[in-house]
């Protein structure tokens, strides 16, 4: 393997100040990423943040305006065909030959990657069975539902057994059942393949990712494991309690004990650097307050995302 000097062999994908302009618009702005072999890394961000542009550059579909990247040690600008031999891509559009059936679509990809016919058939059979498409595998793809096309698109990215997998919004527009089926399959690939995933579904990123980055306006805004990002969101804990017969005296007592106390209709919201669930509930009981429900609120990736980008997610 012709490996560039200085490249870390443990890294599957490395970007070096990767930048792409479209006229005056800076779609990707000096991004530096290191994704380890076997890691599942997610790129999150609002529409137009630069996720797909980053993937298109890493798949050698777009040339960077400046900077570069390496996939398995091969430079995307200098050795694009070496990179293309090692990657599998499931694009945002399903991008399947509509008048071909599953076998014919997979055979095309197999032949382009110079797999033997036997090997292509074996891999196709295995993947079609696993993704629940074997019974419809001889039907022309144009007769498939959106979910079936997405699953076939994923199989087309996998049939040649690539080392690195790029999944651009693999569950976009799918019903919850189809989405779960694809998540389960991606989860099975963890550790076996290096996966770069972009998604709008934060739950998807939370469940699947080893690490993730939130990209906004072409820049990496934050990077880490889902747990790290949620933990770093705030150094305060929040407790939400649904109560009845709350009195001014009790509110005054709580304000003396905790940093932030807020009442929203029948909800009492307490925030402090440390909250003791038992202590709070016992205090309220002792004051004769009826507690209907109480929970310590865990931060979610949604909270992280909105804090970082200040934007709601859009599809």
């Amino acid at each position: 393997m012709n490996v560039r000097v200085g490249v870390k062999l443990s890294e599957a994908i490395q970007t070096f100040e990767l930048t792409r302009h479209f006229n005056s618009l800076v779609a990707v702005n000096h991004i530096n990423l290191e994704i380890g072999k076997g890691e599942l890394f997610s790129l999150l961000g609002p529409n137009g943040a630069g996720k797909t542009t980053t993937i298109r550059m890493l798949c050698c579909l777009l040339k960077p305006t400046s900077g570069t990247a390496q996939v398995m040690g091969y430079d995307i600008a200098e050795e694009p065909f070496k990179v293309k031999e090692l990657i599998g891509v499931s694009p945002q559009e399903t991008s399947i030959s509509e008048r071909l059936n599953c076998w014919e679509n997979l055979s095309l990809i197999g032949e382009i990657h110079r797999l033997t016919s036997t090997e292509t058939k074996r891999r196709s059979q295995e993947l079609l069975e696993r993704m629940g498409l074997i019974e419809r595998s001889k039907d022309q793809v144009r007769k498939f539902s959106g979910g079936m096309k997405r699953r076939l698109s994923l199989i087309m990215a996998l049939v040649h057994d690539p080392e690195v997998l790029f999944l651009d919004e693999p569950t976009l527009g799918l019903d919850p059942q189809s989405r779960r089926a694809i998540w389960e399959y991606i989860a099975q690939l963890k550790g076996k393949k290096t996966i770069l995933l972009t998604t709008h579904y934060l739950e998807e990123a939370d469940v699947l990712s080893d690490r993730l980055a939130i990209i906004d306006e072409g820049k990496i805004a934050v990077l880490g494991t889902p747990e790290e990002l949620k933990k770093n969101l705030s150094d305060k804990q929040t407790m939400v309690i649904k109560v009845g017969n709350l009195t001014a005296e009790v509110m005054s007592g709580l304000r003396g004990r905790y940093a932030e106390v807020e009442q929203r209709n029948d909800e009492l919201i307490l925030s402090a650097s440390e909250l003791d669930f038992k202590e709070i509930t016992e205090y309220l009981y002792s004051q004769g307050i009826t507690i209907r429900s109480a929970a310590l609120k865990q931060p979610t990736l949604d909270d992280v995302f909105i804090q970082i980008t200040g934007k709601e997610l859009r599809e």
Binding site: C59, C60, L61, F81, K84, E85, I87, V89, P91, Q92, E93, T94, S95, I96, S97, E98, I109, I112, H113, M156, F166
Partner: peptide
């Protein structure tokens, strides 16, 4: 338009292919 060519452009196929 359907992105099929883009998908194939991520494979090792050459322009003359």
């Amino acid at each position: 338009e359907k992105g099929f060519l883009s998908r194939l452009l991520t494979t090792p196929a050459r322009p003359w292919d």
